[in-house]
Every structure is written in structure tokens, then in C-alpha cells.
Design a protein around this nucleic acid. Structure first.
Lengths: 115, 115
DNA sequence: GCCATCCATCGACGGTTGTCAATATCGACT
DNA sequence: AGTCGATATTGACAACCGTCGATGGATGGC
């Protein structure tokens, strides 16, 4: 499964941003795909809960009660966030621990605003 | 029509961000709604084209050819961006000019990353 | 080996979304 | 008044998305 595949922020012309020049179709597709992963209230809360948890990681069982949804649904959202490059998954015993990918949110933010 | 209604970034505890503390459901809904307006390749390109146009504004007729979609579709996307607080609409003659709302993208970016 | 627990996947269902053609509205010009 | 050109709105349709129940796999303990 591919992780986030945004055109790198720091290529030839440093800090290519949304407002500096017109996005070509391919870049727009990539960025939209990444933003779509964020544009859901449940996923935002999951990201937020994981980020502010002990050790900046959490297992699925810890996330079920806070969001109040079924286990398959939570698993689905975690998969979307992972495939978009915002979370990593590591299995320890029967538990799956999800953690924030450092810099992933910052990279998206740099597309929206000046450095 | 309500414009963007994000909980203010600079309220009591300055810079409440996604990774600092768990989002409550209401804040997650607001932020998701705003991000959803951005999470579309056509809308990203429209935003980008408007931002980098002469005078940072553009009329609908200037946007049809670059994105290659029908006029109703482009009007629809512009409406979504306007209602989300990213664009303003001013009518001059028979033309409707859209322009970036200063600071709107920055406000979203601040939710994703440290100041 | 057997069961219990944690998690992922599958299939299905309703709701949302992006798109277009057709139509309506509004302003300018004759 | 009448027409033309630029936008907005409506209605419809296919595609996508969020959710759940049911099922399947893997791990650890008995």
C-alpha cells in the first residue's frame, strides 16, 4: 500500500504552495486525496486522540469508546489515515498500535500557507 | 449563508491545535466541514488559479477553460468554496469576480501544525 | 487442542457528492 | 421592449462514502 505521495515540498523551487502558482491536475489530485483523508470528523478525532495519548500511540480498543462507533468502522477510518500517510501501524501481541507520522500534518499545512 | 465558523484559533488557550488535545465532536465537525471544501481537485485548482491571477481575483468565464468543466459545475464549486469562507464574490456588471479571503487558508493550516 | 480476545475484511445499505443539460435570473446594449 | 451574454439554480443520475453486522485470522492463555 502506498503511503502519502505528495509532490515534495522542497523540490526545485522551494515551497511550492497553493496560492503561488496554479496547481496542475496531477498535483491537485494528490493533494485532494490527502485532504480527503483528513476531511472527516471521526478521522480528525482519531488523529487527535492518538496524538495526545500516552507515548503518542493508541491501540484500536482505546479508540472505540471515545468515538462511539463500531469496531469495523474505526478500523476502516484508521486504514484510511494510514494509507494517506498520517498514521503508522505496529502490532504488538494481539493489539495494533497506531501512531502519528512525524511531519505529515506539517507537510499538508505547508501547501496551504506560507512557510 | 454562514461563512466559515471555526472555533477561533486565538481564544483562551492560544493555538489549540489538532495534535495538542483531543478534539471534541463539535470542533471536529466544523474543521471537517471546512476541510471537505478543500478536498477536491477541481476546487483546489480553482483556488489556486484565483490566487495567482491578476489582482488575485478572477471571473467565472476565466475559470471555465482552465478546469475544462461545464459552467454550472464550476459555479457549484465556487459556491462551496465561498460558503466555506475561502472565497468572496463581488459582482461587477454581468461578471462575478471571485477573490481569496486573506488568512482563511492560514487559519486551517494552524489547526494542522504548530505555529 | 480449544476457547477468548483483538483486529481486519467483506457485503450491504442509505446518504452524500460531482457532474451535466435545461432553465431561470440579471445586467447591458440597441 | 427585446435580445444577448454571463451566472446561478434546478433536477437527475452515477459514483463514492460512512456505517453496520457477520465473518475470518491471528495471538495468547487454559
Amino acid at each position: 500500500m502506498p503511503t502519502m505521495n505528495l509532490p515534495l515540498v522542497a523540490d526545485a523551487t522551494c515551497c511550492a504552495r497553493l496560492v503561488k502558482e496554479p496547481l496542475d491536475a496531477a498535483a491537485a489530485d494528490d493533494l485532494a486525496h490527502t485532504l480527503k483523508a483528513l476531511a472527516d470528523p471521526v478521522r480528525l478525532r482519531l488523529l487527535s486522540i492518538v496524538a495526545s495519548a500516552e507515548g503518542a500511540e493508541a491501540c484500536v480498543c482505546d479508540l472505540l469508546e471515545p468515538v462511539g462507533l463500531s469496531q469495523p468502522t474505526v478500523s476502516h477510518h484508521l486504514k484510511v489515515l494510514t494509507e494517506a500517510g498520517f498514521l503508522t501501524r505496529t502490532k504488538r501481541g494481539t493489539w495494533a498500535f497506531y501512531a502519528l507520522v512525524p511531519g505529515a500534518l506539517e507537510e499538508v499545512a505547508q501547501w496551504l500557507t506560507a512557510p
